[in-house]
Design a protein around this nucleic acid. Structure first.
Lengths: 139, 139
DNA sequence: TTCGTTGTGTTATTCTATAACGTGTGGCAT
DNA sequence: ATGCCACACGTTATAGAATAACACAACGAA
C-alpha cells in the first residue's frame, strides 16, 4: 500500500537518507552517490522533490537538509502514506549530535488550523522545528 | 525601555526591514543599502545577527529572508523586548503576496514545551512557519 | 506510429552564507 | 596617559545551496 514504485535515482537518494543517523544536505547526498553515477546537484534535488511530495522524506528548513520520514508505515489516526497526511509533522533537532526526532501533535495542529480558519488563511505547508539539546547531549 | 542603542549599520538594516511589506533577503538588503555605503554581504549579515539576537528582527527559515519584529513594543503577557520573550513566535506567510503575519500562541508553546520536557529535550530556538494563501489572495 | 509525459544527464549560473584578514574607536584599569 | 581589550566595521575570497536552460531516452495512450 506504499511507495508508488520509486525510480532508480529516488531509491538511491532515499537509501542515503534512511541509512543516515542525522539530516543530510543535498550536496552530501550527491557526494555519497558519485560512485553510483551521480554527477550534478539536480539529480539529487529532483529525486528529493518527488520523495518529499510523496511524504517519504522531509526537508528541514532550518538546516537546509533532508531526512527520511520516520512514520513511513505508521497510521496513528487512520492515515498512512497512501491517502492523506498525519497532520503537520514537527521535528526536534539536537544541535550537538544532530539526531532528529519526528513527531506530530494534534493539539498543535488544531491550534494552528484554528488560527488559520479564523483569518481565512489557507495553509499549504507548515514547518515546525525545535532546535536544542537532546537528553544524551546535556551535561 | 527598548533598543539598547543600535549601531549605524544595524539602524540602516532595520529601517529596510521596517519599511518593507514583505520579507527581505540579505542580498536584497545589501542592494538597497549600496547607496549608504554597503558593499559586502557580511555587513548585512552581521547587523542581522545582532538584530535577531535582540529580538528586533526575525529570520524566516523557509524563505531565507528576514522581517522586522511585529511585536516590538508589545507586552501581551508581561513580556516586552527588554527581558524575556513572548514565547515562541509563529509566522503565517502568504505565498502569493508575500505578506507575513506574526503571532504567538501559548497553547502551542505549552504543547511544545511539554513534549520537550517529557523527553528532557532542552529547546534553544523554535521555528513555526505556515505557508499558504491569505484571505486577500484567495480567489 | 505519433505524440505527450516523465525521468534523466549536463553545463552554467544565481542565490545564500561564512572564513579569514585587517582597521579604527571607545572604554577602562593601571 | 598608556596599554589593553572588546567590538563594530570594511574587504576579498570562498564555500554551500538551489535553479535555469537545454538535450535525450523510455514509455504508454491515442
Amino acid at each position: 500500500m506504499n511507495t508508488p514504485t520509486l525510480t532508480k535515482n529516488q531509491t538511491l537518494v532515499l537509501d542515503v537518507l534512511t541509512r543516515s543517523e542525522a539530516p543530510v544536505s543535498a550536496y552530501t547526498i550527491l557526494d555519497k552517490l558519485r560512485d553510483q553515477g551521480f554527477r550534478a546537484p539536480l539529480q539529487v534535488y529532483r529525486a528529493l522533490d518527488k520523495l518529499i511530495e510523496m511524504g517519504i522524506a522531509h526537508r528541514l528548513e532550518s538546516l537546509n537538509s533532508f531526512v527520511a520520514c520516520a512514520h513511513a508505515n505508521e497510521s496513528c489516526c487512520g492515515h498512512g502514506h497512501g491517502h492523506g497526511h498525519h497532520g503537520t509533522v514537527a521535528f526536534a533537532i539536537c544541535e550537538s549530535c544532530g539526531q532528529v526526532n519526528e513527531f506530530h501533535d494534534h493539539a498543535i495542529d488544531d491550534r494552528l488550523n484554528g488560527w488559520a480558519k479564523d483569518r481565512k488563511f489557507k495553509p499549504s505547508k507548515t514547518t515546525i522545528e525545535i532546535r536544542g539539546l537532546c537528553e544524551a547531549c546535556m551535561h
